[in-house]
Every structure is written in C-alpha cells, then in structure tokens.
C-alpha cells in the first residue's frame, strides 16, 4: 500500500516540557489507524503536529515524498489534503450547515458555488444531514454538529481524515450516530487517523492500533494483537484500566 503520511523522529516541546519524543509512524492509503492512550500522553498533540496546528520542534513529516516542514513548503495547500474533525466540532458559527461545507471549497479550492454545493450535498447526504442545510450550528444537537463537521472535512476531498476524540464531547445517546457514520466511511475505504477512547470502535473498525504513553509510541499492531496479546507492560496496564472486562 502507498504511504500517505510518514512521520520520522518527530518531537514537540512546550517550553521545557517534552510532549512528543522521537515519534516514527506511517499512515498508508485506505488504512484506518486508531491512536489510544491515557490522558496527557500526547495523542492530540501528535495529530495537531501532523496538520501543523502545532509547529513540531524536530523531525520530519513526509507527505508524497516531500518533507512539509521545509521552509519553502506550502502548508495551506498541504492542509487542504488533510481533513480534521475536532472534539468540540468547531463549526463556523456564522455559516449555516451548507455554507460550512461550501466556503472552503469556494475560497480555497476555487470551485464554483454550484459545484461546491453539489459536492457538499453529496457528503451531507452520507452523514444524514442533508435536510438541515439551512440550520445554523447553534440550532443543532452535538451529534448533528459532529456529522456536519465530518461532511465539511469530506467536502474538501482530502487524502486522509484526522479525528481527535470526535465523540468525547457528546452525550452517550449521540455517540452511536457519529460512530456509525465513521464506520461507513471506513468501510468505503477512506483513510482515517482516529484518536479515540472508544475501544469498541478501535477493535472493530481499525486496521492498526497505536498505543501512546508519555509522548512515545509504546506499541502498535493489529487490533487483535494489541487488545488480546499486548507485549508491553504499559499497554497491558492501560488496557486493564480501561477495559476491565478483558482482565
């Protein structure tokens, strides 16, 4: 499989606090990779470094054979290739549902309004929000907002979609609707990198699970491998804490 993103020796410090240490990992085309780990282990920071919402302090991020941390690289162009779904949804409050999905296409990809609306409608239908195109974000429930946020990211037709705990801010009864959408996307072969605390989702949907602790990747492998036969002590401990039923 073709590599989409390759992270090499990536490190990130906030002041003297070293949050990511020498991270190496890759995301291949069509893969669903889940990142798990305890709170504060650096999962969000890794994701934010990958799309440069945080500036890494060292290492390389190779995208299509080029290191995008080189000065000359066009980071705006690069970001359009990476969709991002946030824990807090972050829909544009001044745009309605349709417009949230259209504005980026028109302003950045320079699509015509009509083209953009067609694309947006296609993805809004996939996430089941096509009936709400006139609603403003504040008129939607959390689950609906997150589905629109997914449609917004998809509308840019990125190579890979990054999710940072997409269901953590949702009431329990809304978690299902979002996970269902994500599963459908995964089944359709979309490349996804998902930070999550939903172990069920990770087990069922992902091709690969990455376990992080204290800024390093402790272990990675297939879901079966990580959940049933973890080799590292730290992984075992984490799973014991989060999935007591396995123990």
């Amino acid at each position: 499989m073709e590599k989409i993103i390759e992270v090499q020796h990536l490190s990130k410090s906030f002041g003297t606090h070293e949050v990511l240490k020498d991270i190496d990992f890759t995301v291949k085309s069509g893969e669903v990779v889940c990142i798990i780990g305890s709170s504060g282990s650096g999962k969000s920071t890794l994701l934010r470094c990958i799309n440069l919402l945080e500036q890494p302090t060292g290492g390389k991020i190779i995208y299509k054979g080029e290191n995008i941390l080189d000065d000359k690289h066009d980071i705006y162009q690069y970001r359009t290739k990476l969709g991002m779904v946030f824990q807090q949804f972050n829909l544009f409050n001044n745009h309605n549902v349709l417009s949230n999905c259209v504005v980026g296409q028109v302003k950045i990809l320079k699509r015509t309004q009509k083209e953009a609306e067609e694309v947006a409608m296609k993805f809004l239908k996939i996430v089941g929000m096509d009936q709400y195109i006139k609603a403003k974000p504040k008129q939607l429930s959390g689950g609906q907002k997150q589905r629109v946020a997914i449609a917004r990211a998809l509308s840019m037709e990125p190579d890979v979609l990054l999710f940072d705990e997409p269901t953590s801010a949702l009431d329990p009864e809304m978690v299902g609707e979002v996970l269902k959408v994500m599963k459908e996307l995964a089944d359709n072969g979309l490349t996804m990198l998902v930070v999550t605390h939903e172990m069920g989702f990770a087990k069922e949907v992902s091709d690969r699970v990455v376990f992080m602790d204290q800024g390093v990747i402790v272990e990675e492998g297939s879901p079966e491998q990580i959940f049933q036969n973890p080799t590292q002590e730290r992984t075992k401990e984490f799973l014991k804490r989060t999935l007591p039923e396995l123990a």
Binding site: Y76, Y78, R79, T80, M84, F86, F92, I108
Partner: peptide
C-alpha cells in the same frame, strides 16, 4: 483552528 485545518 477549524478554518486553518481546511487550509485557510
């Protein structure tokens, strides 16, 4: 962040 993430 959402705006930057889509490339603005």
């Amino acid at each position: 962040e959402a705006a930057q993430a889509i490339g603005m």
